[in-house]
Design a protein around this nucleic acid. Structure first.
Lengths: 330, 330
DNA sequence: TTGAAAGCGGTACCAA
DNA sequence: TTGGTACCGCTTTCAA
């Protein structure tokens, strides 16, 4: 049996209530006894039984985080941001990875919900995911990070629509007129919809009518990048491609290499995300870098503030981070 | 206030005890009432208060997992393995990321220890890490995964010593006589010690006296790989290099590319780990692939079995996964 | 098969 | 500043 507050109380010759007050730093007590109690707690190797504490308190300081295993890449960065702020503001993170297997997903989420949580932060969870329904039915505060959702759930993410303008402008200024968007053709996710719309509108702003064929690729993975090159073949019918995730862009890059297409001379690439992965390629990927750490920090702050309304949408910065995959073809 | 077992009991006109028995599937009850209760629980959106359950039970089914943020790469794969087995055997994982900042580390670990845990699984935590002391002092079962430790803590990992023989033999059979080991020079970690020793002994087995200069590089990161190439310069004094982690090997590969050294013609590379990262390079990295998923599964099984003695050391498979970074120079 | 009641370890209110 | 005490929600023993 582990050491309890009572054990300490006995040894110190005071009541459990006092020990509790001292160790939680709440209410009044004399510094003298406090010293003794803290010393004893340390000596006896006491660890608070958080379950008991949770049970007797109404407000929890635990924030659940749902991470799909398919997106662990940037999720890591968001989690780091959340960790830092959580540490600072004294919240605890309960991280749960969810697989694509929906049965397992639901079980995992249910066990999450069995803890009293302040809120659940969903990383890159979409309306179509089976867990989504479970979450909305349950009586928890929700927050979507990195993914804009409907206006029933507040979200923190990049402004995906505006981001596409930034990217298209950047490419346009480098002389590109024929551009492809790879990996955002999945019809459902709002993010994909926004990116497609942003892409099309941005092209129109420059008087370019978009070619529907150049919006291609459904899945958010490496293979999509490889396949895109295979599909269009050399010479490519466009001069620049926007990869909808770093891993897709790496696929594009390697696919181009395999097909003898030179990057950036024959193909310029801008990747969306800009995680550490982009540094590992040759050339280094030019990226529309999302500020994932900031998303994580804002998520914790928003939850701490209690100021989230269902339709709160918070946007974080995006910046073009120059690499070596965009050629100036003016 | 959330729905409790009592609410259900009231509505069903039975006692809380019965509801508990039914929902946990313990003890005896009639199938008829069980049906009603389950239905009611579902309708009312009931979620068990796990804190209360934990408090009243002695044995916990929660396994804490400590993941250093610096090693998230293969950690992901271990976690997936653990998740799968945990799901199967009905355990819950409580994942905590620990940063390099030791103050934060300790706080995180303490909050982990404040939950009643069945055990704590340490991924790639070393004896030198400040958390290690906290963990060993606390009254929890410990298990180290991916890292062999002393024989006070049981561990599940690859056989790092034998692995080096496999790699050296592989390179030897491809005609290599001058080999370097990059990124395993950190004096402390047992893994690094074993790899160095394995490397040296394996060379000796082939009658090769090792060159101390060729064991180089302390940190487990990308920069170490880049720096290694810079340090030795072109032409390299060895024909093959073993990268002590995928990210190091990618550094080697890119460093070589930057220096005009052709891989594998002028430099062969074998990487240790073989995570998904190895598939993203050109050429694809030849790897001594560790079976991380297996480590994760075994970890859960070992904890479930209760058969771990302090000096249990379990080894998982390693296999050479052929890529395109090793040339045959016979 | 079901119910009453004690208790898990803390917290917080109220009284001393 | 301290202590007594009634909970928090669930599990479990024992009795009905």
């Amino acid at each position: 049996m582990a050491i309890t507050i009572k054990d300490i109380a006995n040894k110190a010759g005071i009541s459990a209530a006092s020990v509790s007050r001292i160790l939680t730093n709440r209410g009044r007590f004399s510094e003298a006894t406090a010293q003794r109690v803290r010393q004893l707690a340390h000596e006896m190797g006491y660890y608070k039984n958080q379950s008991a504490a949770d049970l007797s308190q109404k407000e929890s300081r635990v924030i659940g985080v749902l991470v799909p295993t398919t997106h662990t890449n940037f999720a890591d960065e968001i989690i780091k941001g959340m960790q830092a702020k959580a540490f600072e503001l004294d919240y605890e993170l309960l991280i749960a990875f969810v697989e694509t297997d929906s049965q397992q997903q639901i079980k995992t989420v249910k066990s999450l919900l069995s803890r009293q949580l302040l809120a659940v932060v969903m990383l890159a969870i979409d309306i179509e995911d089976p867990v989504f329904e479970v979450l909305t039915k349950a009586d928890v505060r929700l927050l979507s990070v990195s993914n804009q959702l409907n206006n029933v759930i507040p979200s923190i993410s990049s402004d995906n629509y505006a981001m596409m303008h930034t990217i298209v402008d950047y490419l346009y200024n480098h002389g590109h007129r024929k551009m492809a968007l790879i990996g955002a053709s999945n019809p459902d996710p709002i993010v994909a919809v926004l990116r497609r719309k942003g892409f099309i509108d941005a092209l129109l702003d420059h008087g370019i009518t978009y070619n529907p064929e150049f919006i291609w690729g459904v899945d958010n993975d490496y293979q999509t990048g490889l396949d895109a090159i295979k599909k269009f073949g050399a010479p490519l019918p466009f001069t620049a491609a926007i990869g909808s995730a770093d891993i897709i862009s790496i696929g594009l890059l390697n696919g181009a290499k395999d097909a003898g297409i030179a990057v950036p001379q024959d193909l310029s690439i801008v990747t969306i995300d800009g995680t550490e992965l982009t540094q590992l390629t040759r050339p280094i990927l030019t990226a529309a870098q999302q500020n994932f750490a900031q998303m994580g920090e804002l998520a914790i702050m928003a939850l701490a503030d209690h100021t989230l309304s269902p339709h709160t949408v918070t946007f974080t910065d995006i910046t073009i981070k120059q690499g070596g995959t965009v050629a100036n073809i003016n």
